[in-house]
Design a binder for these strands. Structure first.
Length: 556
RNA sequence: GUCCCAGUAGCUCAGCAGGAUAGAGCAACAGCCUUCUAAGCUGUCGGUCGCAGGUUCGAAUCCUGCCUGGGACGCCA
């Protein structure tokens, strides 16, 4: 437990005791004491609405209840300075700021671990994200999903969840056959022969590149190869190349997975049949019109879904169900899937499948990464000039830069559609919010370099001196918020909260910086205290940026 | 037609497990560099929180209906 949590705990206990002493009702009927930090500083450091919540039970006006509670409040075991009753019945608490010095010491002691908590209590969570088909480049939507997913995993891990990151490789379906046929056609074209692209072929430049490379390296050796053998070779080769490219692009985007799960293994290990049998035994499967159906309507879906088509092949859904069954058998408490907006309609059927397999449907949480629209010069920027297709992740990073791309995606809530302003993201100026936080970090590093030259070093011995400055107090309060911000972001699956916090923290630092000179050889003790504060600030900014995959530069 | 997401300042968005006077960035305007990085700071301007009901001591937040924008409704993946 960190210092801030300890203080909050003390306050809750003291208020709880005062409420009990006021004897409005039996202990069992009393609501839990909740404390919050008021938006407006004038309303103290903490506030509780307990008096308003008790109006029904106590049958008295809230301000009178608050009076009773405050009268019974024992402040000896807490850092409370003063207590006020305000507004409709809030009890506002102002603290003696001394404990904030301990926050700085706490941060310096914990370093890159400051902000960690056990909020997740070791819950085993698997997050599956991106999972784009290995048939082409990652595009804009995948970039957002990757950004959200990776940041969420970092945040949840830091908040004490046991997180596993997984990428599901759709390497068994029809789309891979189409990839192989497309490569085949491009290969023949590369050799100057006539060849038709398949109807659902992949027309991207990447396929042409693969085929050209094959023609260059192997000449016409595949032309004489038996068709089936050639097809199989192209299939494996294409898959390998595409998959390598995905892995490289994601790694370059600072996104790494614990597990790359191949759909093909579901077939090889008989897991498709196992899942189908299980559904059948549970009585949720029937035959009709020559197809095999899943009665998903029993679990709230709009209509029943086909598992095996008339031609005997599987729909995408059946292996997907088998995949989720496999995940569940691996012992995760929670499965989080991050899907693009175009797949959100599949949530009900997947949840239905979870339930039909005998699990709690709430085990599966699907987060939807909404559409992204690029804007440039105030107009929609639709297509990549080079390929004529959607803008790829690689192109985006080339244009915008890695840090700005990651930051822009994660600073918005994933479940709202977003406009991505290319001009803003590209601009190396104060208009660009990503530099605001990075600049705070670089500024601190610069201060520390100069302090070092002056023979001044951070010291915890005089942190009490910091309490004199209102700007320093604000900054310390903000630093103390970090563990709770991370915990909330994890529980709410809302990594953008960390980005919002980073901005606030940077603002708090910049404000402090503008008035409180840190390095002052004529005032060594104050300098040492302030160096402790800015060192702590640097640590928290770096920790927070790390969670959202953005670099914390020493110089800018 | 059904379902999902969104609608908050001129623009882009936070805030939504109910709380006090609804916030930030950009844009606009006015100041601040002989002093640790001006990618910064300070201030001003800017709002019927889509509309209408309801629940409540209290609603941007919860419920219902409607309007607008986007998406999804395949024996494609």
């Amino acid at each position: 437990m960190n210092i801030v949590e300890q203080v909050q705990q003390q306050l809750k206990e003291a208020i709880g005791a005062a409420v009990a002493k006021s004897a409005f009702a039996d202990a069992g009927e009393l609501p839990e004491v909740m404390i919050e930090t008021p938006k407006n500083k004038e309303n103290g450091d903490y506030a509780t609405n307990i008096a308003m919540q008790l109006t029904k039970i106590a049958k008295k006006p809230p301000r009178a209840i608050a009076d009773d509670i405050v009268g019974n409040l024992d402040t000896d075991s807490t850092p409370i300075r003063s207590v006020d009753i305000a507004g409709p019945g809030f009890i506002n608490i102002t603290l003696k700021p001394d404990y904030l010095g301990d926050v700085v010491k706490d941060i310096l002691g914990k370093g890159e671990d400051f902000g960690r908590s056990d909020a997740g209590q070791g819950e085993k969570v698997q997050v599956e994200f991106v999972s784009a088909n290995p048939t082409g480049d990652l595009h804009l939507g995948h970039a957002r999903g990757a950004s959200l997913g990776d940041s969420l995993c970092n945040v949840m891990d830091f908040a004490g969840f046991d997180v596993s990151r997984e990428y599901y490789i759709n390497d068994a379906g029809n789309q891979i056959n189409n990839l192989a046929k497309s490569i085949e056609a491009r290969y023949f074209q590369a050799l100057g022969r006539e060849a038709e692209m398949p109807e659902d072929g992949y027309h991207g430049q990447d396929v042409i590149d693969i085929a050209d490379a094959l023609a260059k390296e192997h000449g016409d050796k595949f032309v004489s190869m038996p068709e089936e053998e050639r097809f199989e070779w192209f299939r494996k080769h294409g898959l390998g190349v595409e998959l390598d490219k995905l892995k490289q692009d994601l790694a370059a985007f600072r996104v790494n997975f614990d597990n790359w799960f191949s759909e093909t293994t579901l077939y090889e290990d008989g897991k498709i049949d196992t899942a189908l049998d299980k559904l059948r035994q549970n009585g949720h499967v029937y035959e009709e019109d020559g197809a095999t159906w899943f009665r998903s309507t029993d679990f709230g879906d709009d209509k029943d879904r086909v598992l095996i088509k008339q031609d005997g092949s599987y729909t995408y859904l059946l292996p997907d169900i088998a995949y989720h069954e496999d995940k569940l058998q691996r012992g995760f408490d929670k499965l989080i899937n991050i899907w693009g907006a175009d797949h959100h309609g599949y949530i009900p059927r997947m949840k239905a499948a979870i339930e039909a397999l005998g699990y709690d449907r709430e085990t599966l949480e699907v987060l939807v990464s909404q559409m992204v629209q690029l804007y440039k010069d105030g107009e929609k920027f639709k297509m990549s000039k080079r390929t004529g297709k959607a803008v790829t992740l690689r192109e985006l990073v080339d244009m915008v830069g890695l840090d700005a791309t990651r930051y822009f995606f994660v600073m918005r809530s994933g479940d709202s559609q977003m406009d991505f302003d290319l001009d803003l993201a590209v601009s190396q100026s104060n208009e660009n919010p990503v530099y605001y936080a990075q600049y705070a970090h670089a500024r601190i590093c610069s201060i520390l370099r100069q302090a070092d030259d002056a023979g001044l070093f951070a010291s915890e011995d005089h942190v009490a001196l910091l309490l004199e400055s209102e700007k320093a107090l604000d900054l310390m309060r903000k630093l103390g918020d970090f563990p709770q911000i991370v915990a909330d972001a994890a529980k709410l699956r809302a990594p953008h909260r960390v980005a919002t916090y980073i901005h606030e923290l940077a603002a708090s630092f910049h404000t402090f910086y503008s008035t409180d000179k840190v390095v002052d050889p004529d005032n060594r003790e104050l300098s040492e205290a302030r160096l402790a504060l800015v060192t702590a600030t640097r640590t928290v900014i770096a920790n927070a940026l790390r969670l959202i995959g953005v670099a914390a530069p020493d110089r800018m």
